[in-house]
Design a protein around this nucleic acid. Sequence first.
DNA 1: TTGCATTTACGAATTCTTTCGTAGATTTGA
DNA 2: TCAAATCTACGAAAGAATTCGTAAATGCAA
Lengths: 120, 120
Amino acid sequence: MKPTESEMEILQVLWNKGQCSVREVFEALNKKDVGYTTILKLMQIMHEKEMVTRDTSSKTHIYTANINKEKTQNQFLNKMIDTVYNGSTSRLVMQALGNHKTSKEELDLIKDYLNQLETR
Amino acid sequence: MKPTESEMEILQVLWNKGQCSVREVFEALNKKDVGYTTILKLMQIMHEKEMVTRDTSSKTHIYTANINKEKTQNQFLNKMIDTVYNGSTSRLVMQALGNHKTSKEELDLIKDYLNQLETR
DNA sequence: TTGCATTTACGAATTCTTTCGTAGATTTGA
DNA sequence: TCAAATCTACGAAAGAATTCGTAAATGCAA
């Protein structure tokens, strides 16, 4: 159900690019120390788990993510808030904002979002 | 170096309570399906890794976290932003705010924090 | 004191994840 | 056509992480 770390990296690529062959994912990840067949195997396992679908009509299979991006991200986020931040969303948010150089534009975006939330 | 998920749960308890025997941690976690000796073993491993220190002067050993809470949380946060949110802090923040019932007080706290960041 | 409960130590089993070698199929282009 | 390149399938090894059984030590209470 919950993707592993490696699976997440692959999903990342699939979510971004939409459809990919194994080779495309392999190249996008660009991991030295990891061979092609490793990525292939992972993607086959993901297929068994129905995390991805694939088109096998041509020799080169084309994979597509089959789980929802936002839902999956949320799953990780919740787990993290729980096990790392003891359930405190605001602590996570503040640490995230504090420890990363976030641009003024991004900060404004977040502010707008906050206002929107409050008036709702 | 980087704690595993189980180790994180234990650290959580230690950070909150300060000092704990294995039994205290075991009870705080309150996991059905996981026996006492499992937690004990995990904490012994954490000791080997020097994630925790322990006082063995009495029969019941007393454990204390030996790694920095904020630093460790950040490590997880960064990893997450990277592998789950494709490097976008603001997307993580907005999703965190959107999908959890966060109180008005918390939201205000975050707003203040944002203002503070901008005028800095 | 003696035995019961609690605790630690430790090895080993189990499960999950990642890794890759190899074999066989398919495509391509010389 | 056939050889090289590319791809999939698959098993199995290696590595992490988790789990617990059992034995031995310790402390406590009757």
